[in-house]
């Protein structure tokens, strides 16, 4: 194993994050605060409690998920797209590193960044709503797994993207709708039965549900199913990355 290389890539990616620390942190914190003001305070005041939780608190897990998903995807996709775009990828491709070592470096850094942002938003949430976490260890586990899993998807997008537009399109056109329709701001059980069934095809439902369970002890889908879903997505992402490196698709001529 060339762990030095993995570490060097990881550190380089983290450096990029800290170089732009203000943008990296300020924008997610501001947008989350806006959500709290609008949904939590303004609208939430007129909403009944959902499953015994005030609406302001109820949306916290969904908000964190929304940010963590977009952040891990955009960080990881940009991280690998940029060297491809400016050509410095030549060095990674000609170095004695395996695909696994490359992936751990890039995906690891993107996941850590997203995790940090997720935790900061969680901390911010305490300022706005009374919050208690029923299963803190599970909460952290869900957060970490989600970060890793979606950083892998971001990595894939970064490799497949042919231009900057495509790089931004997927998070915008796919991730945001899935998160919004995935029960981030409501319980699936509040939907008409047909939409409940349709929602079950939305992968984000399982993530948000599991994550919310770790806060409040109630879930839309069984917790085991949520874990299974994350495992399946991770396996899917991993398989795709493995295939990309094996065939060199869009990465090695």
């Amino acid at each position: 194993m060339n762990l030095t290389a993995t570490l060097v890539i990881f550190r380089y990616e983290m450096k990029r994050f800290f170089r732009t620390i203000l943008q990296s942190l300020v924008s997610p914190i501001i947008s989350t605060s806006l959500y709290f003001v609008v949904f939590g305070a303004a609208i939430g005041a007129r909403m009944e409690e959902i499953e015994g939780t005030s609406y302001g608190a109820f949306i916290v897990p969904g908000l964190i998920m929304l940010t963590v998903l977009t952040q891990s995807i955009s960080n990881a996709s940009f991280g690998i797209y940029f060297p491809k775009f400016i050509g410095t990828i030549y060095e990674i491709l000609s170095a004695p590193v395996s695909s696994l070592e490359i992936v751990i470096g890039y995906v690891g850094a993107a996941a850590v960044k997203a995790l940090m942002i997720g935790l900061i938003i969680l901390a911010t949430s305490f300022l706005f709503v009374p919050l208690s976490i029923a299963h803190p260890v599970w909460m952290l586990a869900f957060l970490v797994m989600t970060c890793i899993c979606f950083a892998m998807f971001g990595f894939i997008i970064g490799i497949l993207a042919k231009n900057f537009e495509q790089l931004q399109l997927v998070p915008l056109l796919v991730v945001t709708p899935l998160v919004f329709l995935g029960g981030s701001f409501y319980s699936i059980s509040m939907l008409p039965p047909v939409w409940q069934t349709i929602s079950l095809f939305n992968p984000v439902v399982y993530l948000v549900s599991g994550f919310r369970w770790s806060f409040f002890g109630v879930a839309d889908v069984p917790i085991g199913l949520s874990l299974l879903a994350i495992a399946a997505f991770t396996a899917l992402a991993f398989g795709t990355i493995w295939w990309i490196f094996k065939t060199g698709y869009r990465i090695r001529d």
């Binding site: 060339n2 030095t4 290389a5 570490l7 060097v8 890539i9 380089y12 060095e91 990674i92 170095a95 004695p96 590193v97």
Partner: peptide
């Protein structure tokens, strides 16, 4: 960075 990438 280059040196590290080559595992040295």
């Amino acid at each position: 960075f280059s040196r590290g990438l080559f595992g040295k």
